[in-house]
C-alpha cells in the first residue's frame, strides 16, 4: 500500500459555533480498504466522515480525493462527486419515505441521468444481491429495519462507487440483522473494490474492517498516523 491514498484528510479543523468538532484530524484511505472510524460519542468521528465525503467543508486543512482538493470544488461538483463516486449508508431513516424501495435504489442512478428503465433494472440486480428483492415494490415504512438497511446498502452500491461512507450502519439493528447487513456489505465491496469508511462504536462491527482508527477530541490517535 505504498501508492497514493484514494482519500486523504490533512490537519482538518472544524467547528460548529463554540463546539470544536475536529482539531487537526489527518487520515488516509486507500483504494479497496475498509477503515473503521472508532471513538466515543462526540469525539468527532461523524464530522470527520462528513468532511471526507465533502458534505461539510472544513474550516482549515484539506481533504483530497485522488488529486482533487474537495475544498476547491464548487458545491455542485461535490454533489456530482457524491452522486457518482461515493455511496452512503446511515443508521436509519435514510430512505425517502414516499418512494418505493426499488425507486429509492434507482434514485442515485436517475439523478446521474440514467434512464428510468435501465436504473430500475440495475436496482433490481442489487436488491437481489442483498436478498431484499421481495420488498422492491414496498415503501420503506412497510419493511423491517433490517430490510430497510439492506435496501440502503443496495442504494449505496448501485452506482458502483469508489468509496462507501457508512455511519453506524447497524446501529439500529439487532445482532443477527446487523451481522447480515455487514456480511453482505463487505462481500459486495470486496467484489466491486470500493473502499469503506465505517463509523462505528462497536468493536465487533469494526472487526469487519481492515484497520481501525480511533478519533478522540477531534484528533486521530498518534499510533494510527505512524502506520
Amino acid at each position: 500500500m505504498a501508492d497514493q491514498p484514494l482519500l486523504a484528510a490533512d490537519d482538518v479543523h472544524l467547528s460548529f459555533g463554540e463546539t470544536r468538532a475536529l482539531q487537526g484530524a489527518s487520515l488516509q484511505v486507500y483504494a479497496g480498504e475498509i477503515v473503521a472510524l472508532m471513538g466515543p460519542s462526540g469525539s468527532g468521528k461523524s464530522s470527520l466522515l462528513h468532511c471526507l465525503a465533502g458534505i461539510l467543508a472544513p474550516d482549515a486543512g484539506s481533504v483530497r480525493y485522488g488529486d482533487r482538493d474537495l475544498a476547491q470544488m464548487t458545491d455542485s461538483c461535490r454533489s456530482a462527486l457524491r452522486r457518482g463516486e461515493f455511496g452512503f449508508v446511515f443508521q436509519f431513516g435514510q430512505l425517502v419515505p414516499e418512494l418505493t424501495c426499488a425507486e429509492n435504489v434507482a434514485l442515485p442512478l436517475r439523478l446521474a441521468g440514467t434512464r428510468r428503465r435501465e436504473a430500475h433494472r440495475k436496482a433490481a440486480v442489487w436488491l437481489e444481491r442483498l436478498e431484499v428483492a421481495d420488498v422492491a415494490g414496498k415503501r420503506p415504512g412497510q419493511v423491517s429495519g433490517g430490510q430497510g438497511q439492506r435496501v440502503a446498502v443496495a442504494r449505496a452500491l448501485v452506482t458502483r462507487p469508489k468509496v462507501i461512507f457508512a455511519d453506524e450502519p447497524t446501529g439500529a439493528l439487532d445482532s443477527l440483522n446487523g451481522e447480515l447487513v455487514l456480511k453482505l456489505l463487505v462481500s459486495a465491496v470486496r467484489e466491486t473494490g470500493a473502499a469503506v469508511v465505517l463509523v462505528t462504536h462497536e468493536v465487533r462491527v469494526a472487526a469487519y474492517g481492515d484497520r481501525e482508527v480511533v478519533v478522540r477530541d477531534g484528533r486521530i490517535r498518534e499510533r494510527e498516523l505512524a502506520r
Binding site: S76, S79, A80, L81, F86, G87, F88
Partner: peptide, 10 residues
Amino acid sequence: AVLAAFGTPH
C-alpha cells in the same frame, strides 16, 4: 438531509 448528502442536486 440524506438526499443532499448522497449528492442530489439542489
